Amino acid sequence: MNWEDDDYEDYVETDPDETFSVTCPNCGADVYEDCEMCPICHEYIIRSTNPLVGKPDWYIWTALLGILAVIFAMLFVI
């Protein structure tokens, strides 16, 4: 089957009016995803790329113990 650009657009559901919002970390207001500054509290919205931000401590410790268990199993189980 040969797909051309016009055929592909018929199958993709896009809504140009659809906007995504995020929560302001300072005041909790819903703001547009592409805003740099919250319109309510005027604080900058900083998006962290760190995957551990916002995770509870038990989650991190469980993940570390799981990794150590796999390493232990690989080294000492023959």
Rank of each mutant, 00 (worst) to 15 (best):
T23V: 11
V12A: 10
D34Y: 07
A29T: 08
Y32I: 06
A69H: 06
M1R: 07
D7L: 15
L68V: 07
Y8F: 03
S21C: 15
V70L: 10
M74P: 05
L52A: 09
P16K: 12
V70F: 03
H42N: 00
Y11F: 07
I60V: 08
D17S: 13
A29D: 05
V53R: 15
L64R: 15
A69E: 10
T62L: 10
L52D: 04
T49W: 05
A63P: 01
Y8G: 03
W3D: 08
Y44T: 06
R47P: 00
I67T: 00
T62H: 01
E4L: 11
W61C: 06
D17P: 06
P56F: 07
G66F: 09
V53I: 15
T23Q: 08
I45Y: 01
M74S: 12
M37P: 03
F72N: 08
M74Y: 03
L65Y: 00
V53W: 03
L52T: 08
E36R: 11
E33C: 05
E43K: 14
D57V: 15
N2Y: 10
Y32G: 04
C41F: 04
K55H: 04
I40A: 04
E33G: 08
Y11R: 10
P16G: 09
N50W: 00
F72R: 13
I40W: 00
E43I: 01
I67K: 05
R47A: 07
W3P: 00
L52H: 05
W61Q: 13
P56N: 06
D6Y: 02
Y59H: 11
M74A: 13
Y44E: 05
E33F: 09
Y44A: 08
N2V: 15
V22P: 05
T49Y: 04
C41S: 03
I45V: 06
K55S: 09
F72Q: 10
C41Q: 01
V31C: 06
F72C: 10
D6A: 11
I67Q: 03
V77N: 11
W3L: 12
G54R: 13
L68K: 06
V12E: 08
I45S: 01
N2S: 15
T62F: 07
T19M: 13
I46T: 05
F20S: 09
Y8D: 06
D34C: 10
T23D: 03
N26G: 14
D17R: 15
I45T: 01
E13K: 15
F20E: 07
C35H: 07
G66A: 15
P16R: 14
G54W: 09
Y44M: 13
